[in-house]
Write a protein that binds this DNA or RNA. Sequence first.
DNA 1: AATGAATGAGCATTCATTCAT
DNA 2: GATGAATGAATGCTCATTCAT
Lengths: 235, 235, 235, 235
Amino acid sequence: MPAEIKPARKVAANATAAPTRKGPSTGNKKLEQRQISMESLLEAALRLFVSQGYRSTNLEQISGAAQLTKGAVYFYFRSKEAVLIELLKRVQRTVVDEAVLRVNAAGPGFTDKLVAYIHYQAGLGITHRDEVLLLILMSLEFKEREGDVQVFISELYERQRSFIETLVHSGQQAGEFRADLSTRELAAIILAINDGTFLEWFRRSATLEGPELVRALRAAVLGAATVPPAASLQA
Amino acid sequence: MPAEIKPARKVAANATAAPTRKGPSTGNKKLEQRQISMESLLEAALRLFVSQGYRSTNLEQISGAAQLTKGAVYFYFRSKEAVLIELLKRVQRTVVDEAVLRVNAAGPGFTDKLVAYIHYQAGLGITHRDEVLLLILMSLEFKEREGDVQVFISELYERQRSFIETLVHSGQQAGEFRADLSTRELAAIILAINDGTFLEWFRRSATLEGPELVRALRAAVLGAATVPPAASLQA
Amino acid sequence: MPAEIKPARKVAANATAAPTRKGPSTGNKKLEQRQISMESLLEAALRLFVSQGYRSTNLEQISGAAQLTKGAVYFYFRSKEAVLIELLKRVQRTVVDEAVLRVNAAGPGFTDKLVAYIHYQAGLGITHRDEVLLLILMSLEFKEREGDVQVFISELYERQRSFIETLVHSGQQAGEFRADLSTRELAAIILAINDGTFLEWFRRSATLEGPELVRALRAAVLGAATVPPAASLQA
Amino acid sequence: MPAEIKPARKVAANATAAPTRKGPSTGNKKLEQRQISMESLLEAALRLFVSQGYRSTNLEQISGAAQLTKGAVYFYFRSKEAVLIELLKRVQRTVVDEAVLRVNAAGPGFTDKLVAYIHYQAGLGITHRDEVLLLILMSLEFKEREGDVQVFISELYERQRSFIETLVHSGQQAGEFRADLSTRELAAIILAINDGTFLEWFRRSATLEGPELVRALRAAVLGAATVPPAASLQA
DNA sequence: AATGAATGAGCATTCATTCAT
DNA sequence: GATGAATGAATGCTCATTCAT
């Protein structure tokens, strides 16, 4: 994870351009505080948006959980929506961008790549559970709404889809994946299994064994994607 | 029992044709009127809850879509929540109860039963799309909230789960389904694939071919559940 | 006393040229800096209060326009209100005090004094447009509010009124001004014409010719104040 | 004043189209209540907007003064701004439209028309004081703001201006008004005197005698507009 | 059978002000 | 000399709910 942070205001830009007076120590303390407050706000928002939904979470809950007041949220973000968008940007990096890198690095076969994808996602379910869920849940909550959030999520999902579709298509071309299912629908099912599993895990993670679940997940994805071995024998 | 509900659609057709007060001649006018109004309210609510979410739908939208006013909702229902619960009761009958009947009637093998389940669900996705989605979406929107809705949905989901778990367990016992995956997690994945596919279809039904999607869905579920044929040959 | 203020404009020019910290070489840097910052705050406040109103202008706009931050305002002033009061004090000197001096110096007749008043005001409309308008606009915005501002403005207006009333009364006594109109109301009309003309000019200065407007203004004031020449001939 | 009322919602349209059930008596009671509540809200808003300004008046004050709650305002109007716009529409009819009618009916000379204008305005100052002031004050408060209010007021003012300009121009052509002043600026001064007098009366009506003030006002306007009699004799 | 009027709690957002640095 | 962080009160607006008719 790079040290991005994205300051809510032009402040940071100024800071880089002309750090005014102050020795570096004082500046660091302020910057540190900024970091801390912003992170705890984002962290609180992430947790609450995932567990209660965006609309059902109010700013008092977010700021309260970060031990700040409502006003502080507006010091760091332009609006409640801006908080969500900042979170989604992080999700993009962690969930989507990184997945692409991992899959590209995996190989050599396309089945290997697909397995790498499944395992990366499964790992995210443990290390970045809320971030993954945020994307799925917000994609549902904002489905019909217009605005920046909807646009951002749509683009994100579209990128995910086209990435998986390309992977599936290549695998089909290479004879590793079943060619008797259309690329688009096969890709859709892979994403569907992924999202569905996250949601089921979200609903009842307490009663499910992670590793076992992943094995079943892998079986499902490979079952859908790969040529049934028996069939291939028969062919 | 199969003849139960489905009026949601029929009524709406009526509603468009003659949605205003009283039919011209029939005898039991009052009762009919009641029926019509209530149904059009429920139909409107179903559509809106699914497309916008429960919290983001207000009573004015619901009553307006049914050509009535907010007050009318309170004539027929105790509260906004009561509208949702009534809808969920119908979903229960159509989606859960009926599925159980269908699967029980299918056979003789457990694979046949599982296929029957998948196909019944796929059929629902066409004939009762919104009802199926309502259950999934509300299960997410009400996850952390307490109250009647949450309880009702939890029970519903629990019944679904235990039904599928029983099916899976029996199939495993019979040697039709893989025994190298734990029952609970395998059942969870089957439900996950189901829900996930509905959601993906919800997000982009316009760009997906139903029949193709069902084939891929079946491949995934069977891929997860059944012993890989090749393996069985080798065994 | 004539050399008093007008830095509002000069400073701004400086501000654009080199608004940041410290001049390069001069001796009494600190004091200069203070002066510059304070002046640019006041200048910004004046412009914004006039164009948007006091209440609709926030401290961020003021400090931002002066290339400073909100906090700086509190370094120089006790409160937002204190900024306005400081501006009003300057207005008092420029607009009211100076007008008194000019009129007193004019003569010998009272008509001459009245004409001097009109012309001084007209001149202010060009050299100190915003300052004149500030007084008029704030007198309206603070009409019902209690507090320092209201008191200050009331006293200022009262001084203006009594000054004009005295002038009118003297002119009437001397037979130069109409005696068939009561002193108080005649004075009120003179002030009304003055304020009204400023406001109309404020609303649409782009479409009005200054000199022409002043001629009409003079005709109105003299028309109200002086004995109609024809009547005097007839008398 | 016609019985317009302008229902905040489509309700009224429905009511006219299909009064549903109910005898006329019940309907009347509801309509009456509607009328009463709406009027008292508008009345309260008018008084408060004039005395405190638009921005400094909150909905609690308005609804409280009408013995209702904030929510009721939103039952009758779309927003706070919509309340103001409804008030301005009434002002338009009373102040602008009616003035045009009166002046057109007056005559035969243009001086008569101008006097009729002054007297109508003076009368309004007594019968519709707040309405006249609302227009003037809001024209200042909304000067730089964009939006419906600003547009509405601008158009209103523009109509007033062009009406007076036409009057002045005709009077100049007819030789009744001074031709040595440009039409536009002379018209501007007439409006300025009018507005200025209203404002001064607004500031201190308690200390001014209405009739005396009107005489002085008339002297000022005629002094500005008409050829000085002496000059005409000399010519 | 249904409406229109009205309420009141909740919420996002704005903004003057404070204060440590 | 000035900033950045943070507060808390105020405010416009939404919406489920109540109730007389």
